[in-house]
Design a protein around this nucleic acid. Structure first.
Lengths: 143, 143
DNA sequence: CTTCCTGCAAAGAGTTTGCATCAAA
DNA sequence: TTTGATGCAAACTCTTTGCAGGAAG
């Protein structure tokens, strides 16, 4: 199974900033804050501004390539390619895992019938405590 | 099945603003913006400030009584009692329905085993087009 | 009385926008 | 050459915070 490569959609110019933003998003396992993208590109020596990042993210969202999500307990949004949209978040350390087998489709049909909605998408975030944090907490208690 | 009534948790003073915020939350079917709560109380003639609303929402969240959620395409958070946390949102008109039978528990066990997480909570938002908007769109096209 | 809570105003933080310049096509 | 895209700075909006006065217990 090959990774689908996100490309700049037709009708938009191929600028190096735009290209770089897409590459960053592809290289990441989890969705990130707009400023993370900005910082990573700055570190690479690229001349880019935060507004360019935001403007491109907005364009990519409108084209369905990027999905925006808000984690509980976070004040800023995260952005990621649209195939990474189901998360398992550790409430203790903030670690984020991607859930790749989404069981939602089973439920989707029922939901469409009951509410007569045409379902276009969904977003799932699951919160919990990761194995590492569970271990740390045990140590604290027994110490 | 009787509706569980949310009360001001122990250790906090019983002020009329706090009480009123809780009553508003109980009276609503769907989660609302902080400013909605503020406006509703202002309309009722209550002397209250937006910061009081935010401070109380924060307290209620820390006590697990209120849940904060960000809808896609919205810039501000919504707050609701914690039993109302699964939404069906119309992308066209913004209408929000509560999904009350959450199928997630089936999946939860598997997730805990695979990732060794202690699952503490989750959030689900489903997006689509509601029946009314489907009808409107059809009319537009045929006109 | 004591301490928490509130209202007000100001500060903060993330995101958006206006505008002149730059570069893709 | 044309027009979309960028960088910078300023503007906006939601949310948080400091502080002095007020109310709950």
């Amino acid at each position: 199974m090959q990774k689908a490569e996100a490309k700049i959609p037709k009708g938009y110019r191929n600028t190096k900033q735009r290209q770089a933003i897409l590459e960053i998003l592809e290289s990441l396992e989890i969705p990130v804050h707009a400023e993370d993208i900005y910082m990573k590109l700055k570190e690479k020596g690229m001349n880019i501004s935060l507004s360019t990042v935001y403007r491109n993210l907005e364009m990519l969202m409108s084209e369905g390539i990027v999905v925006k999500s808000h984690m509980m307990n976070e004040d800023k949004a995260r952005y990621g390619l649209s195939d990474k949209k189901h998360f398992l978040v550790c409430e203790s350390c903030g670690k984020i895992l991607i859930i790749d087998n989404c069981p939602f489709d089973v439920f989707k049909k029922e939901l469409m019938e009951v509410h007569q909605f045409d379902i276009t998408g969904h977003s799932i975030e699951v919160y919990g405590i990761c194995p590492e944090c569970k271990t740390k907490n045990k140590k604290k208690i027994s110490a």
